[in-house]
Simulated scan of single mutants.
Amino acid sequence: MDVPKVEVDSGVESVQLPCKATLHLPEDVTVEWTDRKNRKVHVYEDDSDQPEEQHQVYRDRTKMNEDLLKTGDLSLTLNHPTEEDTDTYTCTAYSRRGRVLMKERVQLYVGVPQVEVDSGVESVLLLCKATVHLPKDAKVEWKDDYYYDDYYYDDYYYDDYYKRKVHVYENSSDQPHKQDQVYRDRTTVKRNLLKTGDLSLTLKYPTDGDNHTYTCTVYSRWKRILMEKQVTLKVRESDGFDETMRAASVPHQKESDRSSSLYTPVDFY
């Protein structure tokens, strides 16, 4: 049987993953949403949600209908979907004794726009427009997807995206000391960005070392995500590109410096 597909663009506030009960559900039913890695996306048990059972990636980002047992609508709402959420999700209903009553799957694809430029250009603009009203005390962070790591430890599966801070705007001003040194003196955002809603980032002297997916995230004062949008940068190598220009455009990073760079795990709020 074909798995239904849901497609959305990065930057939408939320996406709904559909799941309808195919039989009558008992009052003591347990409903679990899991991803392809069998991480728990959302758990409903004992007539209530169980957020402590969620994987941290999905913490504070999911919800189900309050009257799901009455309506049989087990659909899941996932807030602020990003490229990392592109996956196959499984909705499973269990009896009190753990017997599988029903199981449905749905594929989610989150599309990310791509910007392409030739190496040697002076700068590139990574677009991000606010889709919500931004409070005056909002924090804006641009991060890259430096690398992804997954591993097993003590029979548990772990996975982390390590993202470098590209640009930070907080307390009504830029915070260059919070940037990773790779981007130091290479980024700018527009003035009055919270008022205009234009959170776009200008990245100077892009090279193929900047080929990443960049995430623009806006947080409230209480660190709640207000919006999140991504854009992928592709810098094409030009024929005869001067290597001295590359060396001049990107600060040299010693091995000793790398250990102190701001390689920070993705924040989950």
Rank of each mutant, 00 (worst) to 15 (best):
V8M: 04
D9G: 07
S10G: 03
G11A: 02
V12D: 04
S14T: 03
V15K: 01
L17Q: 03
C19H: 00
H24S: 14
L25A: 10
L25W: 06
P26T: 08
E27N: 09
D28I: 00
V29W: 03
T30D: 10
E32F: 05
E32K: 13
T34W: 01
D35L: 08
K37R: 15
R39Q: 11
K40P: 09
Y44D: 04
D46F: 06
D47H: 15
D47R: 13
E53F: 05
Q56H: 14
Q56Y: 12
R59K: 15
K63W: 12
D67Q: 12
D67N: 10
L68T: 06
L69S: 06
L69D: 11
K70A: 15
G72K: 07
L74H: 04
S75I: 03
N79I: 14
E83P: 05
E84H: 11
D85K: 04
D87P: 09
C91T: 02
A93I: 07
A93E: 12
Y94T: 03
S95Q: 08
G98W: 00
R99Y: 14
L101A: 09
E104I: 07
V110E: 02
V110S: 00
V112A: 01
V121L: 10
V121D: 11
S123N: 15
L127D: 07
K129G: 10
V132M: 05
H133K: 11
D137S: 15
A138S: 15
K139G: 14
Y146V: 12
Y147N: 14
D150L: 07
Y151R: 10
Y153W: 02
D154M: 05
D154A: 09
S172D: 09
P176E: 10
Q179K: 14
R184P: 03
R186V: 04
T187Q: 02
G197V: 02
D198L: 00
T207Y: 03
T207D: 10
H212K: 01
H212D: 02
H212S: 02
T213L: 01
T213D: 01
T217G: 00
R221T: 07
M227T: 02
M227W: 00
K229W: 01
E237F: 00
S238V: 08
D239F: 06
D242V: 05
R246V: 12
A248L: 07
A248Q: 02
S249D: 09
S249Y: 03
P251N: 07
Q253H: 08
E255W: 01
S256W: 04
Y263C: 12
Y269M: 04
